[in-house]
């Protein structure tokens, strides 16, 4: 029997595909319905929900970089907040499975040469015991190429918007990505500061372009 990763109810759907061996979903319908997928018009660069298609003022304001675009799956609502907290801070590693299929599909569409995680500073990794970004890549069954590492720094989530945008580079390249396009997978996209720093560091490793996929898109 398959149980919901969040509430532990039975999730097996009584269906013809299910009978012929299709895998049961990892969440039950009740839990799944708490999360809102992003649909409708979004910013072409950062996936922010907007009234009509286009480029949001934030993205327009960012200076040009080899970062091309970000794609996000869900709104960062209360349920998603709780889920990511449970996943990232309380170490419920298995939750990454619920995004695996979507991440895999989006990665395929992004059509990049290499997939790279956002590295954690060594002390943070020791604290959490795993890198959530790598977990998402691994669960999606994608090959991970470690191209970057990170100096010690303050937690991004503890910073204000202005502090984030002004943040200094803490990433540095450890691999060679000469002439490659890179896909970065992470949990949340807030201001786009992190991904742009990552892209800059990847540029130093020789990458020609960077796209990203994140589970949630926070901010309005």
């Amino acid at each position: 029997m398959s149980q919901c990763l969040l509430c532990e109810n039975d999730t097996a759907v009584q269906s013809w595909r299910g009978f012929f061996g299709a895998k049961a979903p990892v969440l039950c319908n009740i839990c799944l319905n708490q999360f809102e997928k992003i649909d409708g018009p979004t910013c072409e660069v950062c996936s922010r929900p907007m009234d009509q298609k286009g480029i949001c003022p934030d993205c327009a304001a960012w200076e040009k970089n080899i970062f091309i675009s970000n794609q996000s799956l869900y709104h960062y609502n209360e349920a998603m907040k709780a889920l990511i907290a449970r996943f990232k801070y309380r170490g419920d590693y298995a939750l990454a499975e619920m995004f695996a299929e979507d991440v895999r599909a989006m990665a395929k569409k992004a059509a990049c040469d290499l997939v790279c995680a956002v590295p954690l500073p060594p002390s943070r990794l020791a604290e959490r015991r795993f890198n959530q970004s790598e977990a998402l890549i691994e669960m999606a069954g994608l090959p991970h190429t470690p191209l970057l590492a990170r100096h010690e720094s303050d937690k991004q989530s503890k910073k204000s918007r202005a502090e984030r945008i002004e943040a200094e580079q803490t990433f540095y390249p450890i691999g060679n990505a000469a002439g490659k396009s890179i896909l970065v997978i992470d949990d949340i996209y807030t201001t786009g500061a992190t991904i742009r720093l990552v892209a800059e560091a990847l540029g130093q490793a020789g990458a020609v372009s960077v796209k990203s996929i994140t589970i949630a898109r926070s901010g309005s």
Binding site: V13, Q14, S15, W16, R17, G18, F19
Partner: peptide
């Protein structure tokens, strides 16, 4: 009917 109850 049972196999159709979940989706169809």
């Amino acid at each position: 009917l049972v196999l159709s109850s979940g989706v169809i």
